[in-house]
Amino acid sequence: MALVLHDMNGLLMDLLAITLLEIFYGIASLALISLGLAIIFGMLRVINFAHGEFLMIGGFSFIMLTSAGVNMWIAMLIGAPLIVGLLGIVVERVVIRNLYGRIVETILATWGLSLFLMGAASLLFGYFQRGVSPPFGTLKIGNYQEGVYSIFVIVLAAAVYLSTYLVLRYTKLGLIARATMQNPEMASSLGVAREKVYAVTFFCGAALTGLAGAVLAPIAGVVPTSGLAYIARSFITVITGGATVIAGTGIASVLFGTVSQLTAILTRPVWGEAALLLTAVILLRFLPAGITGRYFRNGL
């Protein structure tokens, strides 16, 4: 009897552990795909509708570099962010620079950009680029088995958030960036080159997006239309989070990731998705400037 009880406990513990891991993974992937968008929105007030395509190009950069013989980790952690970051700089220069402060125009322009990049990717890369399989082995938890790569994604997401926070909070670059965003005129009168700050910020946002695209590529695969699957979710996460980059998007990711994963686990996947959207609707209704709009006005 005691033995059976122990077994039952063990089974429950396994289930609990694996469920927690799923939830953390859900949070981490949501947090990763949203961060770049959050930086560009939070700091520049630009809604980048081509965000999904930035993710897609990050994924393509990663698999193309890898198949060209570049080391997988270099391709993922350096190559893809660099390529998408540079793309971000070009986009900022050619399109966004003329549209600062006009949020609606940027929606239209970046929507156009999204269509363009989708078409361009289908011409350049097509639908048949061979992907990269998820590295690392598996982890056994009782009856269950989970990829170590999921744990890698969770750890990486945490690391990326922490380092972004540290850069913004403690470095000169972060200080200048925050100052320029809060009061461009003042910053520029103090000798800060505003245009340069915008470009660097856009580069950083795009690079983080490229990183996220590369990290998810081994799991999700990449096709020119991959971006469509991400855009709505990351958009909703960022806006619901509010204007503070780290806290807002972080909290929103935790909330949405938990709600959608738990609901999906307990009921059906479709209700998981619905729960995410419903939570967003209710949050926005009662915190009309996003989660952090009220409480973290000057936070990060």
Binding site: A274, A280, L284, P288
Partner: peptide, 24 residues
């Protein structure tokens, strides 16, 4: 929406979300 004083981009997103709920 309006009694929640939603406006601007937040209004855009809440309406988008509702549209996606219908879609799903």
């Amino acid at each position: 929406i309006f009694w929640g004083r939603l406006s601007d981009v937040y209004l855009a997103v809440i309406t988008l979300t509702i549209s996606l709920i219908f879609f799903m």
